[in-house]
Design a protein around this nucleic acid. Structure first.
Length: 473
DNA sequence: TTTTGAGTTGTTCGA
DNA sequence: GTCGAACAACTCAAA
């Protein structure tokens, strides 16, 4: 055994197919496992409340699997750089290993840490554990970044090969140091217990991720292309929060689903459809890396003159709490509040409603999602909101305003999704469930509010606003 | 350099 | 009920 190495866990909270962790073990050194809580270093987007809930339970799960293999997860708080340098001094560690992240602030921090460790004579090595392909590895013919998904994906997909995952170690030869904190001391759990229902929906940690992947690969993936649009069904993988925290990596998923397609060729086009969604996740990171201002600025500068309606706290509040009087919107917002997650189809509907019907700036929506989603991810959240608002890369054309009644009737045809999350409407029959206001007497009996805006008039106002912006530029 | 083909997820209207 | 066209040009990426 030669010396000590540090593995710095960040958002790679798994043991299987963890390249940095595997390299640290491979080095033959004894291993010090570290997590450093430093949310201020992710400013201006420190983890939101739902993310913190997830992180708490994911770290607890990681502590358990490490303990079973003879290692302890050391938890610290403070400045990442100070903590790491102090640990290097204490242990005489020859190397620090970690997996890369792609948020602008974190990239800067990590670059500085890498440089300072090396200047102290400590090796610092980083790896890719979180993406199929890293942002700088895909270039246009001119050597620039892509702004359109389809050519991006053609290129990226052509370079992609499935690789079997690196196995988790059975036994870890570990090092321990003093000064580690209790997980509870990080204060990640909410003081007001709005997370009461979360455990019924989620199992944070690597085991939970693997269980979902097995279930998805065995059954759901074959019907994914159609079912993924149905919020009333359980047709999606629900892997997004696990991916965000690195409890599973996209390359593990790609490998597992490639095996499914190999064994059952009929499912291969469905597998391809899902892998393409992993491609969108990569593409979001590609855009965030090359356009680092997009978390706070529209990618399309024309939108700097867009006539937003001005912040309407009342309307935004009703949107946040699911009392807009538009059933599919309210169902989505309440699903988000109660479970920390919202079906993707419904995310588009509620985002279109906020940015177009209420004409509120997309950042109001992005910030609420950031605080309430267990899968809140800066790259995906930014791109998703900019796409819907029409100001992002490859964005929806301006005239594409979702009609929540039509969307409800098409994708929640029996109204089951609405009834599940909006119990006031439990007894409203299918023909009216997505527009109960057309029967005022029925609406009165339910106690459900009338719509906060007129759908037709607000759609026209949104289109007029876009025309105005384009006329000015 | 210029040209060309193409572009996640929709809605409305009129035939 | 179903179908196709209009909605708006514009920018991207590659030949």
């Amino acid at each position: 055994m030669t010396g000590t190495a540090i593995h710095w866990f960040r958002r790679d909270l798994r043991l299987e197919d963890n390249p940095a962790f595997a390299a640290a073990l491979e080095s033959g050194a004894r291993l010090l496992c570290v997590y450093i809580h430093a949310p201020h270093e992710e400013a201006p987007w420190p983890p939101g409340a739902a993310s913190r809930w997830w992180l708490h339970h994911s770290l607890a799960a990681l502590q358990n699997v490490l303990a079973k293999r003879g290692a302890r997860l050391h938890i610290f708080r403070g400045e990442s750089r100070n903590v790491l340098e102090s640990l290097v001094r204490q242990t005489g560690a020859a190397a620090v290993y970690w997996n890369r992240l792609y948020e602008p602030a974190v990239i800067q921090r990590d670059a500085a840490i890498k440089q300072s460790l090396r200047s102290l004579g400590t090796a610092a090595q980083s790896f890719n554990a979180g993406l199929l392909t890293e942002p700088w590895a895909i270039e246009t013919g001119d050597g620039g970044p892509y702004r359109v998904f389809t050519p991006y994906w053609r290129k990226a997909r052509s370079l992609l090969q499935p690789h079997p995952p690196i196995s988790a170690p059975k036994r870890i030869d570990s090092v321990e140091v003093d000064g580690s904190q209790d997980l509870e001391a990080l204060g990640l759990l909410p003081r007001i217990r709005w997370d009461a229902e979360f455990p019924a929906h989620w199992q944070p940690g690597e085991r939970g991720a693997q269980a979902l992947l097995r279930r998805f690969g065995a059954r759901a993936v074959s019907t994914y292309p159609d079912e993924r649009n149905r919020p009333d069904r359980d047709g999606t993988s629900r892997l997004s929060p696990h991916l965000h925290f690195g409890e599973i990596g996209p390359r593990q998923i790609f490998w597992a689903l490639s095996q499914v397609a190999r064994d059952a060729p009929a499912s291969s086009s469905a597998v391809e459809a899902y892998v393409r969604e992993l491609g969108w996740r990569d593409f979001s990171h590609h855009l965030l890396y090359h356009f680092p201002k997009t978390p706070v600025e529209s990618l399309n500068p024309q939108f700097n003159t867009f006539p937003w309606a001005g912040e309407d706290r009342h309307a935004v509040g009703r949107w946040q709490h699911g009392t807009t009087g538009v059933p599919i919107v309210d169902a989505g917002m309440r699903q988000l509040w109660k479970s920390g997650w919202m079906h993707n189809r419904v995310r588009m509907i509620v985002a279109s409603f906020l940015t177009k019907n209420l004409r509120q700036h997309w950042l109001h929506g992005a910030r609420w999602f950031w605080d309430t989603l267990v899968d809140a991810d800066l790259a995906n959240n930014t791109q998703g909101w900019q796409w819907t608002a029409g100001c992002g890369a490859d964005a929806a054309p301006y005239f594409r305003v979702f009609n929540p009644v039509t969307q409800g009737e098409r994708f929640d045809p029996d109204g089951d999704y609405v009834r599940r999350w909006v119990p006031e409407l439990k007894r409203v029959p299918a023909p009216l469930i997505h527009q109960p206001w057309i029967d005022p007497e029925l609406l009165g009996r339910t106690g459900y509010p009338a719509p906060v805006v007129d759908l037709r008039a607000s759609r026209e106002a949104a289109l007029a606003a876009y025309r105005q912006m384009r006329g000015e530029s």
